[in-house]
Nucleic acid binder design. Structure first.
Lengths: 233, 233
DNA sequence: CGCCTTCTTGACAACCATCAAGATGCGTGG
DNA sequence: CCACGCATCTTGATGGTTGTCAAGAAGGCG
């Protein structure tokens, strides 16, 4: 159970519980459970029975999908305020992907039954869920088109821009992606191989567009990235 | 306005208005407008301001997305009972894709304002929308993974299976995709070119897996398609 | 300080898009 | 009813993009 005023304030700021009247937020808080998972730990596995719904408080999660043959792609990275486990909302019986932690992460969680009851009682929650899923659906459609029609370099540029938008932090040097991301991780997000990502980022680094230390990427020249995306050469 | 008992029965059977109490269905029907669009006509264009929400009664729609450079992919084909224009539900200001009719199509429509009001008043509608968007989101994620990791032939097999599931009709010869689909259309759905689709289907036709006349594809050996999908050669 | 993971870079080849040209078939108009 | 024309489909040849294989370099953690 979660009840402190700070917790309620956090809840009120999340994508799924925004714009709720106070008593509804109270109810949401009363039925929430706090949980913490360590870096690299798995929140749930693809194929597991859908039993819980989550909201990230602090940290970063990574959602992936694996094919029967082992090939993997990254579906999304989830930061503070974002929800995980939408299957719990939509009566999908098994999680369609695996979610694990990129950094130590704090979460709120609700059982499938509870979150559905909350949605039924407060249409605003369901409408927020519609908005979130709509936006994510749209983003995935766009990725699908990019993957179908664009060259790798442009796809990598798009992926990087999206990352910056979702998890970018302004610094003196430019925009930094604020969680660690290996070449392999990036490749799984862009739909290519770590080799191609490495080559492309190396070339961009030569041109002063980006730089990366450890596993943190910094964008120095967003304008040149835009140019790469639009380039019709 | 739509009020006949048959219309209400149709509405009660759609993915977005199922499981509603009678008076809610009544309300939905009262605020609905009937509309009809001819084959090849456009329901709305990508980028248009989101003004209406639709449900297909009979016919078939096709949702596509076009890149700035003109490259196009098919997002989805929509048949009876399915909804179009989810942007109207999720406050996305402009339609993210274009929807046009593959066959003469009858629709119900609601203004953006009306459908949102209905959702707010009846949480069940919003929950149904969550379920529909969740399922579509999941499907798109799977397509994304296939496009990232699988060979064209297997992707074409997956695409054909999905089509059969969504719009297949059992016949004496096998399962027929029950709307006309050109090689180009198929290619835009599978993320490849019409040439590759043509070659692949020709090869499969030689093996007795499928056949196609005019623009109707029939699957004779679903089992062999499954084998192609799983083949780990 | 050493090992192991991750990254970089090169060489090569395969898959599939592109280009090209002919075949088929449907709709339309005479 | 037939013939013409246009759209679609088929099939071949070729080349480019990018994945695969390989091996060495760099960097972090125990």
């Amino acid at each position: 159970m979660v009840g402190g005023q700070t917790d309620l304030n956090i809840l009120a700021g999340t994508e799924i519980f925004r714009s709720l009247p106070t008593e509804a937020i109270d109810e949401v808080g009363r039925s929430a459970v706090r949980r913490r998972i360590a870096r690299k730990a798995v929140l749930y596995h693809q194929g597991d029975a859908t039993d819980n719904f989550y909201v990230v408080i602090v940290g970063r999660l990574r959602a992936t999908q694996t094919a029967p043959d082992g090939a993997q792609i990254a579906l999304r990275y989830l930061g503070p305020g974002e929800m995980a486990g939408y299957a719990a909302l939509s009566e999908i019986p098994a999680y369609p992907g695996t979610v694990s932690a990129v950094e130590d992460t704090h979460l709120f969680s609700w059982s499938t039954h509870t979150i559905r009851q909350l949605m039924g009682r407060h249409a605003q929650i369901a409408m927020n869920a519609v908005a979130v899923l709509g936006t994510r659906y749209q983003e995935t459609q766009t990725r699908l088109r990019e993957l179908s029609t664009e060259t790798v370099e442009r796809r990598i540029a798009h992926t990087l821009t999206r990352l910056a938008q979702q998890a970018g932090r302004r610094t003196a040097q430019g925009i930094e992606i604020c969680f660690p991301l290996s070449r392999q991780d990036f490749a799984e997000l862009a739909g290519t191989t770590l080799h191609t990502v490495s080559r492309t980022l190396s070339a961009w680094e030569k041109d002063g567009i980006v730089s990366s230390t450890h596993r943190y990427i910094v964008i120095h020249r967003p304008d040149l990235l835009e140019q790469i995306k639009e380039d019709v050469t």
